Amino acid sequence: MMKSTSTKYGTVAVTIHWISALVIFVLLVSGFRAGSLTNGADKADILSLHVPLGLTILLLTVLRVAWWVLADKKPISQSSDPAWQTFSAKAVHVIFYIVIFGMAASGIGLIALSGAGAVLFGGGDGTLPNFHDYLPRTPHGIGARLMVLLIVAHAGAALYHHFIKKDGLIWRMWFGSKG
């Protein structure tokens, strides 16, 4: 089933979710790794993967929003969670979107202002700029750290539902008919 039902997310939503999760994980690892490197060639190698993946997560997020607005409806909440937990879950999801769009904007701004795109994609003199000299670097770094916190909260809540509450909630965002 491509579209969601009242109790389970559809294949399109599940696929976008898990591809996004994988891409965000690679982005975080590559971004923190690049930030720790001093060797420009090594940093450029990592950023030549990081930048296209950043654009990929932007496109996936736009696709996800368009999917929900134009084509599908989210399943009805099956949880008997207290109101504060329901609010927290919704807030985390909204903040995910804000951080993803903010990270994309700051990343694009950083590459555009610094001129690093020429170095990363076959031009320039091969020397990367000092990204700390450019204003978008600060919100990009803050966003990355916030993304880690959001992932911990999101995954923690999913694991809580799966192992403590044992309510089958995690199966709503997986492939197949289990749940």
Rank of each mutant, 00 (worst) to 15 (best):
M1G: 14
M2F: 13
M2I: 13
S4L: 00
S4R: 05
S6M: 12
S6N: 15
T7I: 11
K8D: 00
Y9E: 07
Y9P: 03
A13N: 03
V14S: 02
I16N: 04
H17A: 06
H17C: 03
W18E: 01
W18F: 02
I19G: 08
V23Y: 04
I24M: 08
F25D: 14
V26C: 09
L27P: 03
L27N: 10
L27R: 05
L28R: 03
S30W: 11
S30Q: 07
S30E: 11
S30D: 11
G31K: 06
F32W: 01
F32C: 00
F32P: 06
A34E: 06
T38N: 15
T38F: 15
T38E: 15
N39W: 11
A41W: 07
D42A: 12
K43Y: 06
K43G: 08
L47M: 10
S48F: 03
L49I: 15
V51Q: 05
L53R: 04
L55D: 14
T56V: 15
T56Y: 10
I57Q: 05
L59V: 14
L60W: 07
L60T: 09
T61A: 15
L63Y: 09
R64C: 01
V65D: 06
V65R: 04
V65N: 08
A66I: 10
A66M: 06
W68F: 14
L70C: 12
A71H: 13
A71M: 13
S80C: 13
S80T: 15
S80V: 14
P82G: 13
W84R: 11
Q85P: 09
Q85H: 13
T86H: 14
T86G: 13
F87K: 13
K90R: 14
I95S: 10
I98D: 10
V99T: 06
I100N: 02
F101H: 03
A104Q: 03
A104G: 08
S106E: 00
S106C: 03
G107K: 01
G107Y: 02
G109Y: 04
L110N: 05
L113F: 01
S114C: 02
G117F: 04
G117N: 00
G117D: 03
G117R: 05
G117C: 00
G122C: 00
G123N: 05
D125N: 12
D125Q: 09
D125I: 07
L128C: 02
P129T: 08
D133S: 14
Y134I: 05
Y134E: 10
Y134P: 02
L135D: 15
T138I: 10
P139K: 06
G141I: 01
G143M: 01
A144Y: 08
L146N: 13
L149D: 13
I151P: 05
A153M: 10
H154G: 09
H154I: 03
A155F: 14
A155C: 10
A155Y: 10
G156W: 01
A158Y: 07
A158K: 12
A158E: 09
L159P: 07
Y160W: 13
H161V: 04
H162L: 02
I164N: 14
K165A: 10
K165M: 10
K165V: 09
K166P: 08
D167T: 04
D167W: 05
G168N: 04
L169S: 14
R172S: 00
M173Q: 06
M173I: 12
F175V: 02
G176A: 01
S177Y: 08
K178W: 07
G179E: 06
